[in-house]
Computed example of a mutant assay.
Amino acid sequence: MAGPNGAVVRRLHLGRILRELREQAGLSLEIAAPAFDWSSSKLSRIENGRQGVDVHGVRTMMDVYGVVGPQWEELLDLTRAASEKGWWRAYGLDDKGYVPLEAEATLIREATAAFVPGLLQTDAYAKAVFAATLHRRSETELANLTAIRGRRQERLTSDEDPLELIAVVDEAVLRRPVGGRAVMRVQLAHLAEAAALDRVTLQVLPLSLGAHPGLSAPFTLLTFGDIDFGDMVYVEHPVGAVHINKESEVAVATLTFDRLRSLALDVEESVALIERVAAET
């Protein structure tokens, strides 16, 4: 079950199953939707995970699609789980964006050449990153964003809701004085401490490498544990973000990440570099 995390990924998973059941029944969107007194666009949104559906609606869909046996209860349980509300809503976030996806992940693999990964940022560093964007935020919004980041980070040491992080960062991230020298010194010290956590693996791509595959764009791979959904790639860009779960594209991202890890310093060498840069800052 989704527990306190919310259920965005489960809604996506449910939608994909419902689409497969419709296709197995040999029904198009235009033929199936009127049987539920829905428009074809509404049914499409449900199947794409952009709109929720209640237990009554799923029961009707299973009747029409001819579903029998234990799959009934499995789908109804998934429907209930997919209806749960995420903790992030208390901080003013909706179900779009990265946080709802990460909340249901059990493993995060992140590659970045720009900033320290959010799961490893100090409050002061995070505030400096938020302040540097073109989007002006109120003090309340900044406080909420910082609180959200703190709650996300708790999972790195939580026994009840654990999260593993494997991060590959460019050395330029260590040397960029985000927030000023004092903020950066504290951030670098935090990185060295976080690298010692059992659930954190941190590797640095040295500047001496020159060009490498991670320079084109930062990306994050998410793995969802007991949810049979496959891995997902999340990529941010200047006007938004995309999440991708097409198997062939996820495979390319996975190969890229593995290549970056092979090029990066090992964990001990990475921590030693972080400590040297901190001493110079």
Results as ranks from 00 to 15, higher is better:
Glu154Phe: 04
Glu154Tyr: 03
Glu154Val: 11
Arg155Thr: 10
Arg155Asn: 10
Leu156Asp: 14
Thr157Lys: 13
Thr157Asn: 11
Thr157Phe: 02
Ser158Asp: 14
Ser158Pro: 13
Asp159Gln: 10
Glu160Tyr: 01
Glu160Trp: 00
Glu160Pro: 00
Glu160Val: 02
Glu160Ala: 14
Asp161Arg: 06
Asp161Leu: 12
Asp161His: 04
Pro162Asp: 11
Pro162Lys: 04
Pro162Ser: 10
Pro162Trp: 12
Leu163Trp: 08
Leu163Phe: 08
Leu165Asp: 01
Leu165Phe: 06
Leu165His: 03
Ile166Met: 03
Ile166His: 07
Ile166Ser: 02
Ala167Asp: 01
Ala167Lys: 09
Ala167Cys: 08
Val168Ala: 01
Val169Trp: 04
Val169Tyr: 06
Val169Gln: 02
Asp170Pro: 14
Asp170Trp: 10
Asp170Phe: 11
Asp170Arg: 13
Glu171Ser: 11
Glu171Cys: 08
Glu171Met: 07
Ala172Gln: 13
Ala172Cys: 13
Ala172Ile: 15
Val173Met: 03
Val173Asp: 03
Val173Ser: 04
Val173Thr: 14
Val173Gln: 03
Val173Asn: 04
Val173Pro: 02
Leu174Ser: 10
Leu174Lys: 08
Leu174Val: 08
Leu174Pro: 03
Leu174Gly: 08
Arg175Leu: 12
Arg175Gly: 10
Arg176Thr: 04
Arg176Pro: 00
Arg176His: 13
Arg176Gln: 12
Arg176Trp: 11
Pro177Ala: 08
Pro177Leu: 10
Pro177Met: 10
Pro177Tyr: 15
Val178Gly: 06
Val178Trp: 05
Val178Glu: 09
Val178Arg: 05
Val178Lys: 05
Gly179Leu: 06
Gly179Val: 06
Gly179Tyr: 03
Gly180Lys: 04
Gly180Cys: 07
Gly180Pro: 02
Gly180Thr: 08
Arg181Leu: 13
Arg181Glu: 12
Arg181Cys: 05
Ala182Gln: 12
Ala182Leu: 07
Ala182Phe: 02
Val183Trp: 08
Met184Leu: 14
Met184Tyr: 06
Met184His: 05
Arg185Tyr: 15
Arg185Val: 15
Arg185Ala: 15
Val186Pro: 01
Val186Arg: 00
Val186Trp: 01
Gln187Cys: 06
Leu188Ser: 01
Leu188Asp: 01
Leu188Cys: 04
Leu188Trp: 06
Leu188Pro: 02
Leu188Gln: 03
Leu188Gly: 01
Leu188Glu: 02
Ala189Pro: 06
Ala189Thr: 11
His190Lys: 14
His190Glu: 15
Leu191Val: 12
Leu191Gln: 07
Leu191Gly: 07
Ala192Met: 13
Ala192Cys: 10
Ala192Lys: 12
Ala192Pro: 02
Glu193Thr: 09
Glu193Ala: 12
Glu193Val: 05
Glu193Pro: 00
Glu193Lys: 12
Ala194Ser: 15
Ala194Val: 05
Ala194Gly: 06
Ala194Pro: 05
Ala194Leu: 11
Ala194Arg: 13
Ala195Gln: 04
Ala195Glu: 06
Ala195Lys: 03
Ala195Val: 14
Ala196Gly: 02
Ala196Trp: 00
Ala196His: 02
Leu197Val: 15
Leu197Cys: 14
Asp198Cys: 05
Asp198Thr: 14
Asp198Trp: 05
Arg199Ala: 11
Arg199Asp: 05
Arg199Tyr: 07
Arg199Leu: 06
Val200Ser: 02
Val200Lys: 03
Val200Arg: 03
Val200Thr: 09
Thr201Pro: 01
Thr201Met: 08
Thr201Gln: 12
Leu202Ile: 07
Leu202Met: 04
